[in-house]
């Protein structure tokens, strides 16, 4: 009797080892699935853009021509790349100071109950889909830009940067909408970074007679700078590939102009607009190559951001 039960346990424990191995293998398979997807994206983009890469070579990246007429097609990504970088730059210029200021307001100034409500609202706004910002941009904000902001900027500042008729849509409008979209996101992350500082440190500085601004600038800021830069990288990564918020208001024009009032296009909005219309294989291939460029840009940003965060984790010696 005793012997029998021993045999039984060993048999079942062997089964159990097998089941454990199977379970482990299954989870590993799911994890490998992630790697396969990313490698798959790269390979599909590369394969499909190969005809365009072969035909246009490096000139694709520096040419401004975008002519899909069959027979005399010529494709260059420069206008799309320019639009992507210009709108992202405008968005970061606006969103960076604003989100930091709002985060400081929430952590240092606002009464706790208000900070809770406003902070919660901002986190909810980060969840609003981008097409909603696009709708609002097209129907509400673009007319507002046309009637108020653009004429004002044109008259008061002027110069080549703010030149041309106020059309409402264009690079500047797209950049502002993009800023609004990433604002809640960066604010939420920046607030969490600010909150990581031990209260004792702040209390000690206040106890020495420092003003709130001095505490923020000289004590909190040096503590947080790495985390903030990480938050900005994340926001930048969002802005650079954002599609729907921009497509509505950028104007979708393959030209490069110094004025931020003029219509332009970004890689993502070119894809959104022209992908289903591309009839010729070489046209489609050029669009795939645009996708490859965008994928490459985001991967580079991701790698830089991750290296940065890893260094941060090492320097703070813990999770950040």
């Amino acid at each position: 009797m005793h012997k029998l039960s021993t045999i039984k346990t060993t048999a079942s424990s062997r089964d159990q080892t097998r089941a454990d191995l199977l379970f482990r293998g299954f989870t590993a398979l799911c994890a490998i699935g992630l790697i396969l997807i990313v490698v798959g994206i790269f390979i599909e983009l590369l394969m499909n853009s190969w005809p365009a890469i072969k035909k246009f070579g490096l000139s694709f990246l520096v040419s401004q021509k975008w002519n899909p007429v069959p027979g005399i097609e010529e494709f260059g990504a420069l206008s799309s790349i320019f639009g992507t970088l210009a709108t992202t730059a405008i968005a970061m210029l606006i969103a960076t100071p604003m989100s930091l200021v709002i985060a400081i307001f929430l952590v240092e100034l606002a009464p706790p109950r208000m900070a809770g409500i406003v902070g919660g609202a901002i986190e909810l706004l980060a969840a609003v889909p981008s097409i909603i910002y696009g709708m609002w941009g097209l129907f509400v904000f673009a007319p507002f830009m046309q009637d108020h902001i653009q004429p004002f900027l044109g008259e008061v500042i002027g110069g080549p940067l703010f030149e041309g008729p106020p059309m409402g849509i264009g690079i500047l409008t797209a950049g502002i909408i993009l800023a609004l979209m990433i604002l809640p996101f960066i604010t939420a992350v920046a607030r969490d970074v600010f909150l990581m500082i031990p209260n004792v440190v702040k209390e000690a500085s206040h106890g020495m007679g420092a003003t709130t601004w001095e505490v923020t600038y000289k004590v909190v800021w040096p503590y947080c700078i790495h985390g903030i830069v990480g938050a900005l990288f994340l926001g930048l990564g969002r802005a650079i590939g954002e599609t729907m918020a921009i497509t509505f208001v950028i104007g979708n024009d393959h030209s490069i102009s110094a004025s931020v009032f003029s219509a332009g296009t970004s890689i993502a909005s070119t894809l959104a607009n022209e992908f289903t219309e591309a009839s010729e294989p070489i046209y489609l291939s050029a669009l795939f190559e645009l996708g490859l460029v965008l994928f490459g840009l985001t991967v580079v940003f991701q790698i830089v951001a991750q290296l940065w965060l890893r260094r941060l984790r090492k320097s703070t010696g813990g999770r950040a």
């Binding site: 994206i41 983009l45 590939g241 599609t243 996708g291 985001t298």
Partner: peptide, 17 residues
């Protein structure tokens, strides 16, 4: 992390292909 940062339109293009 790379996949999380990949623009959703690129994923659309990938699935299209």
């Amino acid at each position: 992390n790379i996949l999380m940062g990949t623009p959703s339109i690129i994923i659309g293009v990938f699935v299209y292909a």
